[in-house]
Design a protein around this nucleic acid. Structure first.
Lengths: 173, 173
DNA sequence: AATGATTTGTTCATGTCAAGAACAATTACC
DNA sequence: GGTAATTGTTCTTGACATGAACAAATCATT
């Protein structure tokens, strides 16, 4: 599709006679005055926007430890369920079993967890190392700060309502 | 280490085989035993899980109209802000200005919107066509059904709390 | 009016990420 | 015992956001 990069000489807009605005005002107005009421009543849109904000702050929060959000969640689940299999971890996180392998490889290469053999020689038992436990404790502090920022954003009351309402999605069933 | 590496040897496809019987009893059992309390207190995790549920239902909701969620949101903003530029649309949706071009091309190719020239010949004014307006009305009905399903999931009270709390993220400023 | 800077739409290269197929080793089931 | 299912792994594919680079047009400053 070799379309011209930018339609060079389109037909002129002489017939429309659009309202002429000063450019300074146009830039400001177009940014500030776009009506999004049609979207703010759709919960899916709001949840997506909230997720973008939270995710961005979460990433920055854990960046000093070189941990990605998904990796943090893996460490937490492994800490609270020492010895679980990769399959169980994948299902609980809602990821395909092939999707957790790269992050697990990464975490293992950093010495934060280990894959131990079990009686069922197909599976690996996942455990945190001492180093992993220590780093996760650090991460928990940072995550707590992140939660504080979210609480400032939505208010203490809104924060608790959020946790209560969204608890339905916490357990995948 | 001494663990045998199970590396597949790429070979031609064997017979696909019959449909697999779901013996996921074990998996379901193991999943039920996994403790995820360490994550359900993190709002970011809950929001992500909620977003996954909502997004999946949203996609299925709009599938009969061959509309993706992002495309629906574009149509809504264009309807409520007829004539806005691609830059303004991109900013309001939180996407890069290069990211909206493929979906806009798609929507335009379906005859749902049109890019009209303006006095500023760099910009395009986005408008819904009659067909686009009609399809969006259909989509709105389906989205309303989607919102009903979400309300059943979190309860009427939880639904309204959700909208109220997340309203903070609705306007990007 | 001239000219350099900025804006807009577009293309392209890249990186990330999830989903799924295929496969080896192992175990479960009948 | 033999067939089916499970687990971990690799690889391929496709969607999608990101950012650079670029042409056309407009703005800003003199």
């Amino acid at each position: 599709m070799n379309r011209p990069r930018r339609a060079p000489t389109r037909e002129t807009a002489t017939d429309a006679g659009p309202p002429i605005k000063t450019t300074a005002r146009r830039a400001a107005k177009q940014r500030a005055e776009v009506n999004v009421d049609g979207l703010t009543s759709v919960a899916g849109y709001l949840i997506r926007q909230a997720q973008l904000w939270v995710f961005e702050d979460f990433v920055e929060t854990l960046a000093p430890l070189s941990l990605r959000p998904a990796q943090y969640s893996m460490l937490v689940v492994i800490r609270d369920n020492a010895g679980l299999s990769q399959m169980a971890l994948a299902e609980v996180l809602g990821i395909g079993r092939s999707g957790i392998i790269p992050p697990l490889d990464y975490l293992e290469s950093r010495g934060l967890l280990q894959r131990s053999p079990t009686s069922d020689r197909r599976t690996h038992a996942l455990h945190l190392t001492a180093q992993g436990t220590k780093l996760l404790a650090e991460a928990d502090k940072l995550v707590h700060q992140h939660e504080q920022r979210l609480m400032e954003k939505v208010g203490p009351r809104g924060y608790q309502q959020l946790l209560r309402v969204l608890a339905v999605f916490g357990t995948r069933s």
